[in-house]
Design a protein around this nucleic acid. Sequence first.
DNA 1: ATGAAAGCGCTAACAT
DNA 2: ATGTTAGCGCTTTCAT
Lengths: 350, 350
Amino acid sequence: MARRSIKSNPDGKPDIRTVASLARVSIATVSRTINRSTAVSEKLSKRVWQAIEQLNYFPNTHARSLVSGRSRIVGIVVENITNPFFPELIASFEEVAVANGYELLVSSGKIENAAQIERIVRRMLERKVEGVAVLTFGSEESVLDQLAMHGIPLVLAEFVVDNPMVSTIEIDYATGVREAVEHLVGLGHRRIAYLAGPHTLHSAETRLHCFESSVVACGLRARKEWVVDGDHTLQGGVTGMQKLLALKERPTAVICSNDMTAIGVLHAAHQAKMSVPEDLSVIGLDDIAFTEFTLPPLTTIGLSRHALARAAFEALQRQAEPDEAHVGKRITTVGTKLVVRESTAPPKTR
Amino acid sequence: MARRSIKSNPDGKPDIRTVASLARVSIATVSRTINRSTAVSEKLSKRVWQAIEQLNYFPNTHARSLVSGRSRIVGIVVENITNPFFPELIASFEEVAVANGYELLVSSGKIENAAQIERIVRRMLERKVEGVAVLTFGSEESVLDQLAMHGIPLVLAEFVVDNPMVSTIEIDYATGVREAVEHLVGLGHRRIAYLAGPHTLHSAETRLHCFESSVVACGLRARKEWVVDGDHTLQGGVTGMQKLLALKERPTAVICSNDMTAIGVLHAAHQAKMSVPEDLSVIGLDDIAFTEFTLPPLTTIGLSRHALARAAFEALQRQAEPDEAHVGKRITTVGTKLVVRESTAPPKTR
DNA sequence: ATGAAAGCGCTAACAT
DNA sequence: ATGTTAGCGCTTTCAT
């Protein structure tokens, strides 16, 4: 039986006691040094760090979490991983979380039924995440209720909830969308269509409203048949564009609720032997990496993954580590702005 | 001070004792019931499960990991998250890991210098992962050495290492690549080019060799200037295609080391006013979701993310939970096969 | 400023 | 088959 008193590093993994004895201090002093908590004298702290270095020691996070109640893990929930926007978002989130000493727990599967929600909540609860960024842009309600019920801090995209545990990242679509509409109008377009996202997505509805008000602000009339439903997928873009092509009076430009939709539109236009931008101008939204390489390169409304990820992490951190400078700050805004490439040009017909 | 004897659920989070007392058994019996370890009588086990249900209890994974030494976390390391192949792979890996009661720790950042490798290794070690799937297809050596040195089971893609802790997923590129070459030859192509991946990638070298031997097997001669370097990015595909276009004797078809490259080729061909597949046939490799929506839809050599993820997880699990049925099984093979879409057709010139 | 010791929630001997 | 108990490696009182 390996009792503590007998055991002398059977494996080789140093623990806090190994460090303590090498530095000739108590384990409490080692802990304090590592956590920079109570002041430790210069002299001892130096000895401790030296021992740590020498042993290549690092604390056992499980032991740490167990006693402190803090896991230093944050969760992130997305859906629809086939839209490159989300992997890019996760990568950014990982970067900022890790840089701040946190680990992340990713859920990237589809969220379609109660069992799947249950599993996500369970995973987050089991690993004792300190907060969760729910960046599904729409299906948050369900996940939300359960997590919030358990007292886990949450941050949502564009879903303001009256709960002190829930922060919101607001996205200023208005600016980017207005720039897009003005860009088209400036090129001479009068017949501008909109290929929407799913009605279940909060963000998609917001984007649509921004489009409608921008059109009106530009003195154009909003024609109902020029607003077509989509679902933020490539196929949705194809189908939506086909609907637009079937109209007697076709639009000369189309703004899409996201880049995937816009790529689908490019596809459908090509199939219909239309040239972009000569016969049709197309604008997307998100500015995913692919847009530089579509045919032609896509003009799009940029939404920074990095800004979004950083805002989400910081909101979570504010909840986990309350900081007098930021108390009560529960809404952060992230901007959008037009990126002009080659899918927009003056209309041929006027 | 909340001593155990005084404490009576101050928060409400049930622990193993809460369950034990509700079920009128010892905590050991609760533990046994949950872990299905030593046999527990039907009667008691039923009482325990009932109490668990009633209290909505689940074990604290940190406590569990601390004492058992098993974290039930597996790591996965990828690079180049902008290639949709990798997010799709991660999602598959997540699915199979979670289904088997494991959590995953993802590292998706670029691996370019010692500090970044150090951080990945550190993250994995700190959270005590039970194994790591290094699916970078090339930069494994570096990460590998350090992790293996710490005795962590590893699984690599196509990198056979003489170490019992390291398993390998071998990918049978030969079959898919041969199908692709035969498909082109069957259509009448004689001048087939190859747009390679980076030489630093093991898998890219393998793919190239498969191409070369398939070409020879079909009785064509391998022309050196028709094998062009690429880097598995869209831009690399564009640049590579431009090199091919500059040749006096142009190929009538090009096989690319991955789909991203092929999409770049499509782009460059379009810019050069060439029609695919009329003027040029193009074949990719991976079969990422995007390939259905390129212009035209891409013929490609399919490599199942799900099969790869499952093979990787199972290899890891075999190492973590040795199983007499599979001892010593350290190499798994995953297949590839041609998916014909619309980017290939008979050549115009012969 | 430092150390001794309790105990986080659980698993795994060991005892019955 | 079940219970008792000793820690897993750490943080955090409490005492000095």
